[in-house]
Design a protein around this nucleic acid. Structure first.
Lengths: 352, 352
DNA sequence: TTGTAGGCGTTATCAT
DNA sequence: ATGATAACGCCTACAA
């Protein structure tokens, strides 16, 4: 409590030099067994915890990786990004970092002060995983001059930075193909997320590709849009129902929007999937508990976090290694909301 | 990329001393407008981000608070702790820290290496929020000699450390009272979480108190136990059904266990709440989407994280301030699984 | 096996 | 308004 103990005190108390204390703490060799015991005892007596900053400064390694994301969402506020997605990524990042002996520093670049925060965080870490939408391209470039950055985004980000993402486009294309080929729906609508979200854009692109392949009429923009949230999905669906006849299938930008869609359709006395089919994207935990259980696309959220951190640590250790970009596959998860009677078995669920 | 730029380079480039650069970066006064502009320009040119470790060392303030939790759970592994709970706490912590200009460092004290990790993290932060079950009392004491600690637990932890928790006992007592008074159930069973979890213990205590108040038969241990997980709740409920006649109400240790109970009961052709009532605890997002929607107890998870961090920062700024302990109230959330026809309106949901 | 001493990049205290 | 110059607590050659 009073003045954190330092290595000097430990050294004095155990009758050795600070160099020796340092050696013992690093499990290296080059000291007798007696010394080791004495040092450890002294450290324990004093309740000494080596100073991270001092260590970091001397060794040029903070032992911390940072994770920047757009915003976790404020209860009651507008949540553009899907919070559950972020939670999972954080978990994955934490795992990978811990496995490497590092810790994870998280920060949401909320509002105006986000930029400042990002720079502050950048100074404290050995590398940064930046989720799409959390920083401008300009700031990313600037910061990357000081610390390695891995961009966590849709597909693989353009540019000269390491990046990793999931195959949003391919995944969406796959559900839609299922809807068209297996169920023979021909009147599908797309309820998209935030127009500026890269994920959202990619998913809509996948939707269009599938329609094109099936020879169905194309469209230039989503039939309705909202934030990647339950309420966003609800209002978009509501708008849809007043605009046009009831479609055969409502393809949503993510699971949370699908949940909103589901409740609006129910309120409109439409049966799912009897009257309308509904699909989501992400495969959040909730998806399989809904009634009807939601047909969706599984996105390897935790893996994304894990691999992003591993990629980052590789870069930290090998600054000159060639650029690496990865795209993780998504997987179609067939449940009931698309109209299938019995959910198809699938690997992901069984593994869980 | 090549050798992070330092304050020296910025100083030289802008033709001032490092002291002045430092001043400018702190928005203090004591420098002309011209200098400020020059310094900022030089910094931007070089892409300079002040070194956190160096800053921390010199100012004795890392600008980081740590959050330690038991484990986030491994997909496929046994998850004793409710992961959703942790996610929310993390969010709250992140908010409070960001508001204070700090970042938050998270780490799961997984398995054997958890102890080491904890000490390492302790060295990197200005203070630590430790969730119950993530560290032994002994280690908490040891670490607290070096850095301030706030214990995040059930009720308020005993001992000489600041702590914060939710009223688990009172909350559980309230649902059970509802079951007994409103629905007149007399044959209730308790499906508890991990026997060693303080939360679990407190909740069971609340259950007993409510029975006692109602003049119903007491019991010394939960009627069945499992981890705080869906599968734990399922197996516990399964065991229950073979042991005894079907009870009127199954009171679960948390929401996830309740979900497990729900599916087992359904598989046994029992109707909820027609044949059996079921209740949970926590009020995770999923709870209101279940069929039937789950009657449960809302726990202010995010607030816990937020207030824990605020408490911690207060302590950091005022090491000598009197000990503070807080217990946040929980709230009964009545939905359908208890047998109520129409969910009672309640403040929490409306606010959301 | 162990000690000495310089350096890591900032901040902060004196001067000027 | 600005500049020297000690700390800050640890690591790491280099010596011994």
């Amino acid at each position: 409590m009073t003045a954190r103990p330092t290595i000097y005190q430990v050294a004095r108390r155990s009758g050795v030099s600070t160099a020796t204390v340092s050696r013992v703490m690093h499990d290296g060799d080059g000291f007798s067994d007696t010394t080791r015991v004495r040092v450890l005892a002294a450290a324990a007596d004093l309740g000494w915890v080596p100073s991270g900053p001092a260590r970091g400064l001397a060794s040029r390694r903070a032992g911390i990786v940072g994770l920047l994301f757009p915003d976790l969402g404020t209860s009651g506020g507008a949540e553009e990004e899907s919070p559950l997605f972020v939670d999972q990524v954080i978990r994955g990042a934490e795992r990978a970092a811990t496995a490497a002996g590092d810790a994870v520093l998280i920060a949401a670049t909320r509002g105006a002060s986000g930029r400042t925060l990002a720079y502050s965080v950048a100074g404290k870490v050995d590398g940064l995983v930046v989720m799409a939408q959390s920083l401008t391209e300009r700031d990313i470039q600037a910061i990357s001059r000081s610390v390695p950055i891995v961009v966590l985004a849709n597909r693989s980000a353009r540019g000269k930075l390491d990046s990793i993402g999931a195959d949003n486009r391919g995944g969406m294309k796959e559900v839609v193909r299922h809807l068209v080929q297996v169920h023979a729906y021909r009147d599908l609508v797309f309820v998209g997320g935030p127009a500026r979200s890269p994920d959202s854009v990619e998913r809509f692109a996948g939707f269009r590709e599938a329609l094109l392949d099936a020879g169905l009429p194309d469209r230039k923009a989503p039939d309705a849009e909202g934030g990647f949230t339950e309420s966003g999905g609800a209002s978009a669906t509501r708008a849809l129902l007043t605009d046009r006849p009831v479609p055969q299938a409502v393809v949503c930008g993510n699971d949370e929007m699908a949940i909103g869609a589901l409740s609006v359709l129910r309120a409109a006395k439409l049966r799912v999937p009897g009257d309308v089919a509904v699909t989501g994207f992400d495969d959040i935990a909730l998806a399989r508990h809904l009634r009807p259980a939601l047909t969706t696309v599984h996105q390897p959220m935790r893996d994304l976090g894990e691999r992003a951190v591993r990629m980052l640590l590789d870069r930290v250790n090998q600054p000159a290694a060639p650029l690496s970009k990865a795209v993780l596959p998504t997987q179609l998860i067939v449940r009931r909301s698309c109209g299938c009677r019995r959910p198809l078995p699938n690997r992901v669920r069984e593994a869980a």
